[in-house]
Computed example of a mutant assay.
Amino acid sequence: MTRYLAVVERGYRGSVETQFADVLYLVRELNRQLGGLDLSLRGLAVTYAVDAGPVGPAAGVDTLPDPRASLRTLLAEGVAVSVADADLDAAGVPGDVPLLPGVVRGAARWSDYRAVWFL
């Protein structure tokens, strides 16, 4: 099976604006439609992969997406998720901080993919 790679770099795009369809929802749908998609988290988006508690509600809005819950769903659906150590370091995430189970440390090799998309 030929796989595709989605790269997400921006870890925050506005809460209320993305409450109905955030970027990880798009990754989930592309994975379903294409029959396989891998995800590379870069920039501040690497914080999605940190094994921490759920994101709490903001100022009376309780329909906001939880990126860690979305990432757990993607992992359960077979999406391979990678994070580069350099981006973890740049975001201030120490090397001993646990990542969500299934997330791989290390940069994805773009040459392994049929196409690479920045979302």
Rank of each mutant, 00 (worst) to 15 (best):
A58M: 14
A49F: 05
T63H: 07
L39T: 00
E29L: 11
S70H: 13
G60I: 05
A21H: 13
R28W: 13
V16N: 11
S15Y: 11
R72G: 01
R28H: 14
Y25I: 10
V16P: 07
S40Q: 14
Y48E: 05
E29Y: 12
L74F: 08
V27F: 04
A45L: 05
Q33P: 13
G53L: 06
D62L: 06
V23I: 08
P54F: 12
G43Y: 01
P67C: 05
A49L: 09
L37M: 15
L44M: 13
F20D: 07
A52D: 07
S40Y: 14
S70W: 12
V46N: 00
A45R: 07
L26T: 08
D51E: 14
Y25R: 06
L30F: 09
L24F: 02
S40A: 15
A49D: 04
F20W: 15
A45C: 04
L64E: 06
P54S: 14
L34I: 05
V27C: 01
L41D: 02
E29C: 02
R32K: 13
V50L: 11
R32S: 11
S70L: 11
V46H: 02
T18R: 05
D66C: 04
V55T: 15
E17D: 15
D62Q: 02
V61E: 14
V46G: 02
R72A: 09
Y25D: 13
Y25T: 13
E17T: 06
L39R: 08
R72C: 10
D51T: 06
T63C: 09
G53Q: 08
A52I: 14
V55N: 10
G36Y: 02
G43P: 00
L30T: 09
Y25Q: 08
D38N: 02
G36R: 01
D22L: 04
T63I: 11
A21V: 09
R42W: 11
Q19R: 10
G35F: 09
L26D: 12
P65A: 07
P65D: 02
R68P: 01
P67W: 04
V61Q: 13
P57H: 08
G60S: 05
D22Y: 02
V50E: 07
V55Y: 01
G56C: 12
F20A: 08
L41N: 00
D66R: 06
A76T: 07
V46C: 03
P67Y: 05
V16T: 12
V27D: 00
S70F: 09
Y25F: 08
A49N: 06
R32Q: 13
P67K: 06
P57Q: 08
R28Y: 10
S40W: 13
L41P: 01
L41I: 02
L44N: 12
P65E: 03
D22F: 01
